[in-house]
């Protein structure tokens, strides 16, 4: 019972972080929320994997966030807030889009839970939330940092579901490499982009 309560609380945390990622304009907030997101994911994966293996996901996610943060901190430009006021790119639009994703996801949770044996509703809800919000994030930007965060979010959702069915060490290792590689590619694209494009407020 306690585990279930914590799991549903984790779903709440994931909802807050994913919506926060959509709304955040400052890259520091975005990366902080991403790191928090991996904490939630760690709990979900922990329900199916030994703690040592689940910790790999947490450490990898934090390393990815750190790599992006270190790169971003070296760049000069300040966040662009000009587009915040304009609709439909503004916060209201994003909140409405997030609600739409939530409304789409919630009814499908019990159906998806039937496909994966031994998985609970909170894990499915959390995973689908990450996937849905990550895809929404990807659809709203062409900015390298946001794209990387969106892809990492989608992968986090997928890994939460996949952890329930696959416990191979090789897969865990390869997925960790993919996550870190994605963060490095994101860092590379950030550095490659000219300075004026680096503001987190760019909506694509």
């Amino acid at each position: 019972m306690t585990v279930e309560i914590i799991s549903w609380a984790t779903v709440g945390l994931l909802l807050a972080t994913t919506v926060g990622l959509l709304l955040a304009r400052d890259w520091r907030w975005s990366l902080g929320l991403l790191a928090l997101q991996y904490l939630g994911m760690f709990w979900m994966v922990r329900l199916h994997w030994p703690i040592a293996m689940a910790a790999v996901k947490l450490v990898t996610g934090w390393m990815a966030a750190a790599a992006l943060g270190i790169t971003r901190v070296g760049l000069k430009s300040e966040p662009d807030t000009a587009s915040e006021q304009s609709w439909p790119e503004g916060r209201l639009f994003r909140v409405l889009a997030a609600i739409l994703v939530l409304v789409t996801i919630l009814p499908s949770v019990p159906h998806v839970a039937l496909i994966f044996p031994g998985i609970g509703l909170p894990e499915v809800a959390g995973a689908l939330l990450l996937i849905g919000m990550g895809l929404l994030h990807l659809g709203m930007t062409v900015q390298p940092l946001r794209i990387t965060i969106g892809l990492l979010t989608v992968l986090a959702g997928f890994e939460t579901l996949y952890a329930a069915v696959e416990t191979s060490i090789l897969v865990a290792a390869l997925l960790a490499v993919v996550n870190l590689g994605l963060a490095l590619v994101g860092s590379y694209l950030l550095v490659a982009a000219p300075e004026e494009m680096e503001g987190m407020g760019e909506n694509g």
């Binding site: 993919v178 590689g181 490095l184 590619v185 694209l189 550095v191 494009m197």
Partner: peptide, 18 residues
């Protein structure tokens, strides 16, 4: 997927906006 990640620096040179 790893090969795809390696392809990014090949397709987008360091001095060019992606």
């Amino acid at each position: 997927e790893m090969a795809v990640l390696l392809a990014i620096p090949l397709l987008s040179p360091p001095n060019q906006k992606p």
